[in-house]
Design a protein around this nucleic acid. Structure first.
Length: 268
DNA sequence: ACACTGACCTGCGAGC
DNA sequence: TGCTCGCAGGTCAGTG
């Protein structure tokens, strides 16, 4: 389940593998992935070079010669760089043939991922209603507190709201709230300035640590052909049965339609 | 404006 | 064994 740190790792890995590579041909096997406009998508990307690699929230951004290609992996989307002998597998939905003979393969067994071609000068500030980046200085105590005091949704729901802050998914939302000692179901408008400060601080810290964990494995990806962005983060609550800190039984509750893990003893 | 729900999709594990 | 059912995940359209 790629969240911000995984997307960051995938972008960095693809940058190493694909810098300056040129697309010779594009094959779309499942049209909804590109919004149904297959011809437009293929035509726009033919002969284009991969010039710059960026990330916005959980979106991958490829700056080409004349256009910007964005990709969202959703839950299961993966990019692989293969050689010319590669044959299409069942869950491959988009294949980019490169001029150097390699193939960039987009594989996604749930068909949830999406790609779109945009203008190069597309305003990323408002891209898909995305909010501030977690590492931006604007994501701070004052910002968190001011948004929270006007909202009544559970904190967990707010952290997953991409227009509040871009890039946090279900796993990190649970981990951030554990670090802040706040229950996921706590209403936004019932937090203190100190809580807001903790949310901003722990969000940055946890995402940064996860990026570093993912980053250390980039070399492995280079030798292998796959680009997974799969990092090993030791979770403190998400997916666990017992709290690592106090041994209490972890509770699982559905909040905002998602499974939310928390320790009833450590989180108030 | 905000809050909530269902659709999208497929593999897998639980229960019958 | 073989079937059905529900869950997992992020985003967005639709509804209240």
């Amino acid at each position: 389940m790629p969240e911000l740190p995984e997307v960051e790792t995938v972008v960095k890995t693809l940058e190493v593998m694909l810098q300056d590579a040129q697309i010779k041909d594009v094959h779309v096997f499942y049209p909804p992935i590109v919004g149904g406009k297959v011809d437009e998508f293929e035509t726009a990307l033919k002969n284009q070079h991969f010039n710059e690699f960026k990330r916005r929230g959980k979106y991958l951004l490829f700056y080409m010669d004349d256009v910007l290609l964005s990709a969202h992996l959703r839950m299961e989307g993966k990019f692989f760089v293969e050689d010319s002998s590669y044959t299409k597998k069942k869950h491959d939905h988009v294949i980019f043939d490169l001029v150097d003979g390699r193939r960039l393969v987009y594989s996604d067994f749930r068909k949830f991922g999406r790609m779109e071609v945009l203008q190069k000068d597309f305003d990323l500030e408002t891209f898909h209603q995305l909010g501030v980046e977690p590492f931006d200085d604007r994501f701070n105590e004052a910002y968190v507190y001011n948004v929270c005091k006007n909202r009544k949704v559970p904190l967990k729901t707010l952290l997953l709201d991409q227009s509040f802050v871009a890039g946090i998914g279900n796993i990190y939302a649970d981990e951030i709230l554990f670090a802040c000692k706040l229950r996921p179901g706590r209403s936004c408008n019932r937090i203190t300035h100190k809580d807001a400060s903790n949310i901003a601080m722990h969000t940055k810290r946890i995402l940064q640590e996860a990026i570093l964990a993912g980053g250390t494995t980039i070399r492995t990806y280079e030798s292998a052909k796959g680009v997974h962005g799969r990092f090993q983060l030791s979770c403190m609550v998400h997916g666990l049965k017992e709290c690592k800190q106090c041994g209490s039984t972890i509770h699982v509750k559905r909040i905002g339609g998602r499974s939310s893990y928390y320790c009833p003893h450590c989180q108030k």
